[in-house]
Design a binder for these strands. Structure first.
Length: 820
RNA sequence: GGGUCUGUGGUCUAGGGGUUUAUGACGUCGCCCUUACAAGGCGAAGAUCGAGGGUUCAAUUCCCUCCGGACCCA
């Protein structure tokens, strides 16, 4: 016994930062601790972490999710796995292009391509730096030395190689199909990138005539597309219009280079109650038009060009933007008295997720990943994956249910992975680079080892060097890939695909995919699709889908609501004595929140305790502090108390007193739960168990019983407290690594983060565990009685009977409560 | 408009067809500086488990409708 070896009176943010700084300072020590060593002989556990997209600030909800991924990584290390916890940064995509465009007030396509790419690279690097800092501050134990960037040649080469592989297999095809197109940004986009916004539009009732003079009214919000009309349809059971079927309807606006009339047919997709019940089907107003065109075998018209302007078939509208053309079309119709009525109405229009521009459907020759044919196989493979929580699997199944068209993967943007293809002068052949090389066909010639393939049959013709004369003037592809084409390789990339075949064999299917539920239909779906097409395997063993971080009122955090909370402000709250304060716009006006101390350990503990995986969680700094900082204080003080008693150098002779055997048995039971929970990726249960034990039974009941023996230098008591504490810290360290590291280093000269086998446990005795509730209620009763009698807790008291079930505990209880 | 999930004391949360008192935490109130801990401890009050129907001997738990929230889709 002596002075506590933990000198600080309590855990503090400054202490936390000091420990953290030491932890990260020595790079080789860090690497020894957290680097991925595939040859260690331990079972490999690869985590396919979501590479964050650097956009300036890292959303606190995402940081919270990420800290839980770290908990999973650390708990798997504790269970003896060789964990690869990669640190990747997703840097491809339209976001950074927008940022540069906004910063420089200049559109991408006015730049030289190389110059623009350099601007993007520099800008995204500054964002990336800030994110690395936050990652370290929240305690991530990623393999930072092996950082991967999705815009780096090594990553992009994998994307390109996979593209070529799938192309050769026939799973990627080139085709002229209707595509969703953002005319403002000048690129195709995927279904998954479309969102809908409410807008007021004019619903115009247009008067049409048939070839024999019948009048019909067609309601439309897109009169400018009359020139692209391929057919007029009515419902097959709509009795009002059956006499029109088979007649020709004359387009009420002049067109150029096409027939001025279309046939009237029936189609079941017509909603008879909408407008007049007669529908004009244009190429392409919406997805339904696409479906009808395909079904009726009609030849589509190209009404809108790549710049979003009307083409020559539109006659008087030619060259106008879609918006102007609409106004002009109404003018023309009005002047001919062909408008029956105009009504303003609310309508949902499809816009691009990134640019919020109304999208058009345009026929384009693009690259597609075939996906509709493989859904059944995918479903079967998904059966093998364990979902956490199981119910979130439904998000994926729902989305798969909706897959009806192939995935267009080419984009007309720049800061993305290039499509690795050159075309022969006659467009009959293509050149592809060898696997593992990154190419930029828009500026480079095909590298050594490139092959020539027949464009339509994919037949290998031979090496480019041997046959280049037959190719004529080759043209490099200028288009790039959808960013999901890159992201959906992440599990393959981190598991060693192409680069480390030996590792890949052991590491795939990737052990764990942790992610948020909002990107199930994109990231998760596309990744599973790739694994299925390429390897016919499920991509993962476990998929862990977390909920979203919400504001304190359960609303999504967003700029427009003004309810965001900056992650760094929470992590730094309390550092250097500075308090944190947040002004957040709530539903009833602004609310000020204040906290004195949070930091990474408390933040992580909060997220681990507060919500089960999959549940959305409210982020309120005040609550984080008040509910969870006290837990750290309590456990810290238990350790501080223990630290004044020396641990015996070897285990004392049995028998232990009954109360020691009891707490050991309790500890054993609790730790078994924790071990199971860690194995099940169940952070919540593990944390709750540890917290309840560490702040409840252990200090309130056992420590009070054992206290006087500890002061007397009793070896059994000292051995028990130190065994429990040391093992407790090991099991708790995935949640609060620096906290546990500090205590265990100080007391035991061994860091709990370096424990790589779940601790062995003392004997479990069910009959002793059964006494726990009796002990708790007896203690509670004594405390209550003393209180009622106005006695202090250390005062002597008489007249209290020890219940017969606790007869074995008579001695210790008498001493603990000073019973007379 | 459709699908999926969700609604438990003031707040957050556990549980889940029936163990006479529905977890735990924060907050609230009261007491306590008792040789680890007042940035603590102990104790107390506080919920008919969103509303209304149904199934059942029995529902907070299952089903339906409605209301509110979230995510996704059209």
């Amino acid at each position: 016994m002596g002075t506590p070896r933990l000198p600080e009176k309590r855990w503090s943010i400054d202490l936390e930062k000091k420990i953290q700084a030491e932890h990260y300072a020595d790079e080789s020590a860090y690497q020894r601790r957290y680097g991925f060593k595939p040859d260690s002989g331990k079972p490999i556990f690869v985590i396919d972490t979501p590479p964050p997209y650097p956009s300036g600030t890292w959303h606190i909800g995402a940081v919270a999710q990420y800290s839980m991924i770290d908990v999973l990584a650390r708990s798997q290390r504790l269970l003896g796995h060789e964990v690869y916890f990669p640190w990747g940064v997703d840097r491809n995509g339209i976001n950074i292009e927008f940022t540069v465009e906004k910063d420089t007030k200049r559109k991408m396509k006015t730049y030289d391509r190389e110059e623009f790419l350099n601007l993007c690279r520099t800008t995204i690097e500054t964002f990336t730096q800030a994110m690395r800092k936050t990652a370290a501050r929240v305690g991530l134990s990623c393999d930072f030395a092996a950082e991967y960037l999705t815009d780096a040649p090594d990553y992009r080469s994998v994307t390109q190689s996979i593209f070529i592989e799938l192309f050769k297999k026939g799973d990627i095809v080139e085709d002229l199909r209707p595509n969703i197109y953002d005319p403002v940004e000048g690129t195709t986009i995927a279904d998954a990138e479309v969102e809908r916004i409410q807008r007021t539009t004019k619903l115009v009732d247009v008067r049409w005539l048939t070839d024999d003079g019948d009048e019909l009214i067609i309601s439309t919000t897109r009169p400018e597309l009359i020139c692209a009309c391929g057919v007029v349809v009515v419902h097959p059971e709509d009795e009002r219009y059956q006499h029109l079927v088979g007649k020709q309807a004359i387009l009420p606006i002049p067109v150029d280079g096409r027939k001025q009339s279309v046939e009237i047919q029936t189609h079941p997709s017509v909603k008879s109650e909408f407008g007049s019940g007669i529908l004009m089907v244009c190429s392409f107003g919406d997805q339904n038009d696409v479906a009808v065109f395909r079904e009726l075998g009609l030849t589509p018209f190209q009404a809108i060009d790549l710049n979003g302007c009307m083409t020559s078939i539109s006659g008087p509208l030619e060259g106008m933007s879609v918006r102007d053309a609409r106004v002009k079309a109404i003018e023309i119709l009005e002047s001919e008295n062909n408008i029956a009525s105009i009504e303003e109405r609310q309508q949902e229009v499809p816009v691009s997720e990134r640019g919020k521009n109304p999208v058009e459907i345009i026929l384009l020759k693009e690259w597609y990943v075939r996906q509709t044919h493989i859904q059944d196989t995918m479903l079967k493979l998904i059966e093998e994956i364990e979902f956490h929580p199981p119910r979130n699997k439904q998000f994926l199944l729902d989305w798969m249910d909706n897959i009806s068209i192939d995935w267009p993967i080419s984009r007309r943007r720049w800061y993305h992975t290039e499509i690795p293809i050159w075309y022969s002068e006659d467009e009959e052949y293509i050149i592809v680079p060898p696997a593992g090389t990154y190419v930029q066909p828009w500026k480079d010639a095909p590298p050594e080892g490139s092959r020539i393939l027949k464009r339509d049959t994919r037949e290998d013709i031979g090496a480019y060097v041997d046959h280049h004369e037959m190719m004529g003037n080759i043209r490099g592809e200028e288009k790039v890939f959808d960013t999901w084409m890159d992201s959906s390789n992440s599990n393959l990339f981190v598991s060693g695909y192409l680069k480390q075949p030996e590792v890949f064999k052991k590491a795939f299917p990737t052990a764990l995919r942790p992610q948020g539920k909002e990107i199930v239909r994109t990231w998760l779906y596309y990744t599973l699709l790739k694994s299925c097409l390429l390897l016919e395997k499920p991509g993962f063993k476990h998929v862990w889908i977390d909920g979203l971080g919400m504001d304190p009122w359960g609303r999504k955090m967003s700029k427009s609501l003004g309810n965001g909370i900056d992650a760094d402000s929470v992590l730094e709250c309390g550092a250097g004595g500075r308090t944190g304060s947040w002004k957040i716009r709530g539903p009833d006006g602004s609310v000020s929140l204040k906290a004195n101390k949070i930091g990474s350990e408390c933040f992580r503990l909060w997220k681990a305790c507060e919500a089960q995986v999959g549940d959305d969680f409210h982020i309120n700094p005040e609550e984080i502090e008040s509910k969870y900082f006290g837990v750290l204080t309590k456990i810290f003080n238990v350790a501080r108390f223990a630290s004044q008693f020396d641990c015996p150098t070897s285990e004392p002779q049995t028998p232990y007193p009954i109360e020691d055997r009891w707490i050991q048995s309790e500890f054993s039971e609790m730790m078994t739960e924790v071990e199971t929970a860690w194995k099940n990726l169940d952070i919540y249960t593990a944390t709750q168990s540890l917290k309840t034990f560490g702040t409840g039974i252990l200090p309130s009941h056992w420590l009070e019983m054992a206290k006087s023996r500890l002061y007397d230098g009793d070896a059994h008591a000292a051995w028990t407290i130190h065994q429990i504490l040391r093992k407790f810290l090991a099991a708790f360290s995935p949640i609060c690594p620096f906290f546990c590291h500090h205590i265990s280093m100080t007391l035991y000269d061994e860091s709990s983060v370096d424990v790589h086998a779940f601790p062995s446990l003392p004997p479990l005795d069910a009959t002793l565990n059964a006494k726990t509730s009796d002990i708790e209620s007896f203690n509670s009763e004594v405390w209550k009685t003393k209180k009622e009698k106005g006695l202090s807790l250390n005062a002597e008291i008489e007249g209290i009977e020890i219940p017969p079930t606790l007869e074995e505990f008579r001695k210790t209880l008498t001493r603990m409560h000073k019973l007379l």
